[in-house]
Design a protein around this nucleic acid. Structure first.
Lengths: 204, 204
DNA sequence: TCCTCATGTGGAACTGAGTGTCAGGTTACG
DNA sequence: CGTAACCTGACACTCAGTTCCACATGAGGA
């Protein structure tokens, strides 16, 4: 049958439902002021059950970013070997841009919440930390495959770090513009500000 | 009379002492496994008192980074206006490098602890978030003062973000080398990997 | 159809972080 | 020397997160 058991499907659906109930509360009352008891009551389940679906209060908000680690790596792996690192990284970050830009209304609410809550902002950066090593590995493998000069590991790490930094700056500017500026363009601009000279950013 | 009251001096001294007692415990037992009760007992004060000196457990470790926000801004402000942004940022980051490199033994222990504890790592990045805006302001003011073309705000933000990213990557590599490589050189290398002018980031 | 076993649920008890308050002691300073 | 500011330890409290248990439920096999 399918790789996903009916249990797993049900679990994912409940998760989504609980998060959907919780988000407006966080936005209205403030993340820190909301307790698990509130959330459980609003969702019609017990505190125990709510806690069984999310490892922490931050997770209720940030679980939507979880698949991004693998998605960024997959997007990077899909880029042609000939492409320069910086352009490849720009494209690797597309799933993250898409995740938000696909539903700008919801995305703006979510990012505003995360950006205005230190605990959430910090946890998001914790996730970044786990996204980086796979991206570095992919770039290193790429460059050692193509016989030419192998760039220093430190340089690759720096570029990966910078790429995620560009993404954050773009989010930052997008929130500030109230979603008026297209997120893709802001991301392009951020990457362009650090582009190695002469490299022409290629459109998708 | 003096800008610092004797109370303030005493308070700072006690803070240092309590942190000095706490750090080895964190390293030996693990940050999460240590409780405020442990720490208070080891330091010979009550839990109440210990908690009055630190806002959170993370703060016991990270309070050493607190002055850095102003120090980075001051270092940047001290750079000549003619200097390009990227070089100025490299120099602005020197106080952070010095803070660690001044006592490599202690610095290595501290960074290892922070890097191996997600909660600490996340909180450190939370601090970065507050360091960035002043640096951006300074760079913007500088470039509007010199009559030439004013770079886009987004570009400035991106470069500031990238500069702090470089610092983190350098710390990362320094920890990995066990403190063998000089931290200043690693920082130089990280900045070089993103240097704007045609210099290809790949070194050999 | 009925059994049973794995899983979901609610409830209770527990640890530990962090906050607030209070009484009593100590220190700075006029 | 007196007093006002501050420091301290003790206690009570809220809430996040963990663990354990008893019970309900639903899916699949006999």
């Amino acid at each position: 049958m399918s790789g996903l058991s009916t249990r797993a499907i049900s679990r994912a659906a409940v998760r989504r439902e609980l998060a959907a109930v919780a988000l407006p509360r966080f936005v209205d009352v403030g993340f820190d002021a909301v307790t698990f008891e509130d959330l459980a009551g609003a969702a019609g389940v017990s505190r125990s059950t709510f806690l069984r679906y999310f490892a922490s209060k931050e997770d209720v908000v940030l679980h939507v970013f979880d698949p991004l680690g693998e998605q960024l790596a997959a997007a990077l792996a899909a880029r042609p070997q000939a492409e320069d690192d910086w352009t490849a990284l720009r494209r690797a970050v597309d799933p993250a841009v898409q995740l938000i830009a696909a539903d700008p209304e919801a995305g703006l609410t979510l990012l505003r919440l995360v950006w205005s809550t230190p605990a959430l902002w910090a946890r998001l950066h914790e996730k970044h930390g786990s996204w980086r090593p796979p991206l570095v590995d992919l770039l290193v493998r790429r460059s050692t495959a193509s016989a030419a000069k192998a760039p220093a590991l430190l340089a690759v790490r720096t570029r990966v770090m910078a790429a995620l930094g560009c993404l954050m700056v773009a989010f930052d500017a997008w929130i500030e513009s109230g979603g008026a500026q297209p997120l893709e363009a802001l991301t392009d601009d951020a990457f362009a500000a650090l582009a190695p000279s002469g490299a022409q950013p290629s459109r998708r």
